[in-house]
């Protein structure tokens, strides 16, 4: 499986290089397409892993929406990372950094409810002890 991924990455790099000098905009599109194919392979592999994580999460008894937010944060992280890399390919480094900064802010916003559930758990524990 990994050799397949390596092969795809090599082919994308070579074909992007092929068109770099004569048609730079087409080589960007080829690198984007290759990156997407790699990511789709990775997500297919990840799809089986998600069910295992869900079983573990339900076994440990944490609330299912906490696990859903975790998965959502993972997805947002992947998406922002992928598009920032693509924008960096196009040569706009500052735009990529701003996108990563905005992605971090959205992740921060997503983690607020989890923080609240941890805090009220602690209050309940303190209430029990005192």
């Amino acid at each position: 499986m990994t050799f397949q991924l390596i092969g795809i990455a090599m082919i994308t790099a070579i074909s992007a290089l092929l068109l770099k000098d004569s048609r730079p905009e087409l080589s960007f599109c080829i690198s984007v397409a290759g990156g997407i194919i790699l990511l789709l392979f990775a997500f297919e592999m990840f799809r089986e892993g998600v069910s295992v994580f869900e079983k573990i999460a339900s076994a440990t008894g944490i609330k299912s929406d906490v696990f859903k937010t975790l998965l959502k944060m993972l997805g947002i992280g992947y998406l922002v990372e992928f598009s920032a890399g693509m924008i960096r390919d196009f040569g706009q480094n500052s735009v990529a950094d701003k996108l990563i900064f905005a992605g971090k802010i959205t992740l921060l916003l997503l983690s607020v409810p989890i923080l609240e559930s941890v805090l009220d758990l602690i209050y309940r524990l303190i209430g029990l002890m005192s």
Binding site: F43, K68, K72, G75, I76, L79, F82
Partner: peptide, 12 residues
């Protein structure tokens, strides 16, 4: 397609 698969897998 990529955004669609991410939406289905991660529920974003």
């Amino acid at each position: 397609d990529l955004f669609e698969t991410v939406k289905t897998i991660f529920g974003v």
